[in-house]
């Protein structure tokens, strides 16, 4: 029973369920603090009021090589974009991306700026969009919960075919 079974979707159902359950509740998230949203992400991850660890999310990996999820929070500039792609490529599969805030989603208030990348989805696939400028910590937590639901019911073979989630 090698890894090939998981990737081709031929894993027995109960085992898939168990794998998905354990992946769902042990997400290591790499914090990509870029701008204002980083503070709200910090509030969601580090403050006692919001406390993301109760959802089974661990926000303290030492490097992107140990991370399952990356939260891109804040304005992505054209100078920064190559570095983001590089760190994203260092993450092991299966990996997920939460795009937090209007800037990372579509450029936000800088929609006509000459130096801002209008949407991180131009360079990497995004699983969850969290809108807001900046989103409240609760919105980020809902994004995490929705992502966990997706991971629970995920079929590895169809992983990339699903449409992204948008928090409302």
């Amino acid at each position: 029973m090698g890894l090939g079974l998981v990737e081709s979707g031929k894993m027995p159902k109960p085992l898939t369920k168990l794998l998905s359950l354990s992946r769902k509740y042990s997400i290591w998230v790499y914090q990509w603090g870029l701008a204002c949203c980083a503070i709200e992400m910090g509030a969601a991850f580090a403050s006692p009021r919001y406390d993301v660890m109760r959802l089974g999310v661990i926000p303290l990996p030492a490097s992107p090589r140990q991370a399952d999820l990356v939260v891109i929070s804040g304005t992505v500039t054209d100078k920064m974009a190559p570095a983001i792609l590089r760190l994203y490529e260092q993450m092991p599969d299966p990996k997920y991306v939460i795009s937090m805030g209007s800037c990372a989603n579509c450029g936000g208030p800088y929609w006509d700026s000459y130096s801002v990348t209008k949407g991180i989805d131009q360079i990497l696939p995004v699983d969850v969009y969290v809108p807001g400028c900046p989103p409240r910590p609760e919105a980020l937590l809902e994004g995490v919960v929705l992502l966990q639901e997706r991971i629970q019911s995920e079929d590895m073979a169809e992983r990339w075919r699903g449409a992204p989630i948008i928090v409302e």
Binding site: C36, T75, T77, K79, M80, P109, Y110, D112
Partner: peptide, 25 residues
């Protein structure tokens, strides 16, 4: 320069009321 968003240029195309929303950030 990794966070340069071009404020000084953007304020030239925003009205005075819109600039406050921008400079918050």
């Amino acid at each position: 320069g990794y966070m340069h968003r071009g404020y000084e240029k953007l304020t030239e195309v925003r009205t005075y009321a819109q600039v406050t929303a921008l400079v918050n950030r």
